[in-house]
């Protein structure tokens, strides 16, 4: 959806580069297992797709002659360090196994949960949020939200399915969107363009 917006409108107005770069980092740290484990063709294809789209978006926003001029750097002020440092620290302390790949994987889980924050802050500052941006954020929130249903199903049907780090992070991630979803639903019902209160 986001690539569609950027390519079709030749603009990344209202999109946080910080959030996009955090997602690229999340996928790098999480999908290192592409090199040493195979789950299914679907799983591999999706991992490669996420990496490719994340890097493509960052490339457009940073280097495309037209698109980069529509990036509002002054408004996108969230500091990386405030998200990366606590997640890194937490991953070092709270993990299933203290190995490099496992700690990086855990870090990616924590970081993904909060990676939307720069985007949410930027949207609060944006007067006219375009529909594609609003829909993109809604879909991103719904994506992890729907996992919760899948986790409940798997917990009930699979014997050794215990993933508390993933569950807590996923629920926290979804909760961060609660406020956004509330206003998204209100505006959708009223058939109005999304506006977030300051």
């Amino acid at each position: 959806v986001l690539l569609l917006k950027i390519r079709a409108t030749r603009s990344c107005r209202g999109i946080s580069l910080k959030t996009q770069e955090l997602y690229a980092l999340v996928f790098i740290c999480r999908y290192l297992d592409l090199f040493y484990s195979y789950i299914s063709l679907y799983n591999t294809v999706m991992k490669v797709t996420y990496l490719a789209t994340a890097f493509s978006i960052v490339r457009y926003m940073r280097f495309d002659k037209v698109v980069r001029q529509t990036y509002d750097k002054e408004q996108d002020t969230f500091r990386y360090i405030f998200l990366i440092a606590p997640c890194a620290l937490l991953a070092l302390v709270l993990n299933h196994r203290f190995s490099p790949t496992e700690v990086l994987w855990t870090f990616s889980i924590y970081l993904e949960a909060v990676a939307i924050l720069p985007q949410l802050v930027l949207m609060q500052r944006t007067q006219n949020i375009d529909n594609l941006t609003a829909n993109y954020v809604a879909l991103l929130g719904a994506y992890r939200g729907f996992y919760i249903l899948n986790w409940i199903y798997r917990f009930a049907t699979e014997k050794h399915y215990r993933q508390w780090i993933v569950w807590i992070s996923g629920v926290a991630q979804t909760a961060l969107y609660a406020d956004f979803f509330y206003y998204y639903a209100l505006c959708w019902k009223a058939n109005q363009r999304l506006q977030l209160p300051a």
Binding site: M46, E102, W105, I165, V166
Partner: peptide
Amino acid sequence: QGPAGSHDEL
């Protein structure tokens, strides 16, 4: 599949 085994979700 244990908790620290293969992570089969995306």
